[in-house]
Amino acid sequence: QSSDFLFKFLVIGNAGTGKSCLLHQFIEKKFKDDSNHTIGVEFGSKIINVGGKYVKLQIWDTAGQERFRSVTRSYYRGAAGALLVYDITSRETYNALTNWLTDARMLASQNIVIILCGNKKDLDADREVTFLEASRFAQENELMFLETSALTGENVEEAFVQCARKILNKIESGELDPERMGSGIQYGDAALRQLRSPRRAQAQSAQECGC
């Protein structure tokens, strides 16, 4: 299947918040109960339809333990979007969000679009972080926000789609320039054929030769 755009996405957040399970649920539409914890990085990709445009997401799922940060930081470069994940049943994972946010904004790109995901929504009885508190945090830091459940699949697809939609909007409004180096955005194969603008087409072909 061809795509109009290609976005690099990150999934970041503390260890054990369910990052890999979110990715697995998004791609396979299944909950992975017996997954290994991530050491280094895992990958997944999927093409989604956002408002008529086909967007291919290349998702980099990173190790969560603090210790791995020096290593995982090298994965950040050129990411257009990120899911920042915490576990609603663990305040500690919520408290770490500021650090993750700083890293992402500093290392990925200034314009990275981030959606905050309060995962394990299904474990409401053990909740330590309220919806209100987290949504306030999201607002203050200009993040989108959803509570998700990798177990039931609730809001998982939405998280990825909303993030992608926001990036598309930014491209359309000119706020993001896909041609800028390190934007984490590329034109997909379909877009190359459809491009009308001679400037863009030229730039694209130049890019092709360049690499």
Partner: peptide, 14 residues
Amino acid sequence: LDVIERDLHRQFPF
């Protein structure tokens, strides 16, 4: 302990 406990069921689960 917290991190270790989170990892216990994630080693060679098969």
